[in-house]
Design a protein around this nucleic acid. Structure first.
Lengths: 195, 195
DNA sequence: GAATATATGGACCACTGATCCGGATGGCAA
DNA sequence: TTGCCATCCGGATCAGTGGTCCATATATTC
């Protein structure tokens, strides 16, 4: 890549990061280009789709979350590791308003720029979950996909201004339902409730 | 209202309902107008904003859900009533792809066309929750706002094609966490989990 | 310094929601 | 039935969006 192109790319990423933080994931691409003193075409050449731009912006966070899962696998109890990672994951996703729905869409679309990152993240979570299950700390009847859905759901909650105040408490409610309790006595399986 | 205006309005509602069901809440208004053989301006005069159109479309469902809550208050056990209503509520909301986020936004925005309907719905849910709590069937440490958030969260899950397959099971997981269990033995309060 | 490969951004496209206003039409009063 | 007026309609238009094209400008290489 030519030097001027590299400079433009980096500058665009910086500007886009700021714009994303303050306006959410639906920020106008033209706006980002304007703020970076660059033509829209230039932005779109470096990042052909909004997803590609987001992928570049979120990649660091994705890697951090995946790495964190790896660390926790040895540095904390299975239960603490799982809960701590879940909390961090939800908090991180919530930082980028609207990113949750893109991630949810990306994980089943192999063509999405975010696909690989999402799959990796889900796998990292699944490992923590399996470890907790093996230790009897988490219920047996959920898997990595369930966990990913729960994370997405809770992150979405934090995205909605009217619901966000409840997000922390409801995280604890849901996380508590995933764990089997400190005494390891187990929980009843998910039952098909009446109605 | 003049007869031709009424006819156009009704026709628009019918067409919009179909379009909404198959394309989700972000369907192009121009498209709806075209399919109804009507100018875009006509659609926008009858329904000045997308929200106003949705309000007209969802109003029936809102009323049904509110009415259903009233019926269940006397026709079913507190626990069954709550769970059954929750399930119906989530299922109904999921029918309109994307409506969840609009409802979440509307409940804290008094100017929204959907505001009143959302508040009424939340109140109906709160009554069912309080009844279940009084009967010892539901945990005491959540309120109507929590319940509304949970409904929105679960309905959103059903909206996401990649997560929808898990929505039913996770509904049971979450609903199970709200209930105290068939034996009425109570559940531990929501605890601030480590991490 | 010249030649070449590459990056750039303004002009353009189709689309979106929204507004305006001249003209068509329904409904009522004579 | 006729005639009038308030009401309603929808094409034209506007600013905005993401996306594409290509003549131009610039970095890099020889």
């Amino acid at each position: 890549m030519r030097a001027d192109a590299r400079k433009n790319r980096d500058h665009l990423l910086a500007v886009a990061g700021g714009a994303l933080a303050e306006q959410g994931v639906e920020v106008s691409l033209r706006d980002i280009a304007r703020r970076a003193d660059v033509g829209l075409a230039t932005l779109l050449r470096h990042f052909p789709t909004r997803e590609a731009l987001l992928d570049a912006l979120l990649r660091t966070g994705f890697d951090e979350m995946t790495a964190k899962a790896g660390e926790l696998e040895t540095s904390a109890s299975p239960e603490d590791a799982l809960v701590s990672w879940l909390r961090d994951c939800v908090a991180w996703t919530t930082e980028y308003r609207g990113a949750t729905v893109l991630m949810a869409a990306a994980i089943k679309d192999p063509d999405s720029a975010l696909h690989a990152s999402c799959v990796t993240l889900r796998a990292a979570g699944a490992r923590l979950l399996h470890r907790a299950q093996a230790a009897g700390a988490a219920r047996e009847d959920i898997d990595g996909e369930d966990l990913f859905a729960l994370i997405a759901m809770l992150a979405w909650l934090g995205d909605q201004p009217s619901l966000a105040p409840r997000a922390d408490r409801l995280f604890d409610l849901v996380a508590g339902a995933v764990l089997t309790g400190a005494d390891g006595q187990g929980v009843s399986p998910i039952v098909r409730l009446p109605g």
